[in-house]
Amino acid sequence: MAKVTMNVNGKSRSAEAEGRTLLVDWLREGLRLTGTHVGCDTSQCGACVVHVNGDPVKACSVLAQELDGAEVTTIEGMANADGSLGTVQQAFQDYHGLQCGFCTPGMVMAASALLKENPQPSEAEVRHYLEGNICRCTGYHNIVKAVMAASGQQVEPVAAE
């Protein structure tokens, strides 16, 4: 066991971690930040995507102890300062880009990373980028629309196609 400290969502946070403790378990169990989800055990599903030092990372694929001192943003840190939904979050609500909500944190984190890299992605680019995030509810249709809308591109409103 070792004490691990990271800057999480703008605050210095510490919790114990074994050598084998994954970042996702450190966040969920150590800090009780349960917004980051675990959907698989082979780093395939993307439900646990967070940002580490600005980059999207599957939090099941890194050890907590290796990230001592890192800057981490989770879904809990994505709202605006006044508590309102951030741009990507709001687009997911506006375009019905979520149903059960379980893959949603990882989707939002991946999508916001995409828009940082590529502010005006094409539909094909969105689909390609989100390949590492599995959603079982939406068929991706409205997720793709939400990400396009969050980038400021024109998309059809929901239930009007």
């Binding site: 917004g35 994505m78 609500q93 909500g101 929901v158 009007a160």
Partner: peptide, 27 residues
């Protein structure tokens, strides 16, 4: 399209907790 009631498409109220990591799943 209607704004409210049967036949309308209001934004889902449950989305806010899911989009902010505040859902309460069994785990």
């Amino acid at each position: 399209p209607k704004d409210t009631g049967i036949g309308a498409s209001p934004k889902r109220r449950e989305d806010v907790r899911f989009l902010t990591g505040k859902g309460r799943y069994t785990d």
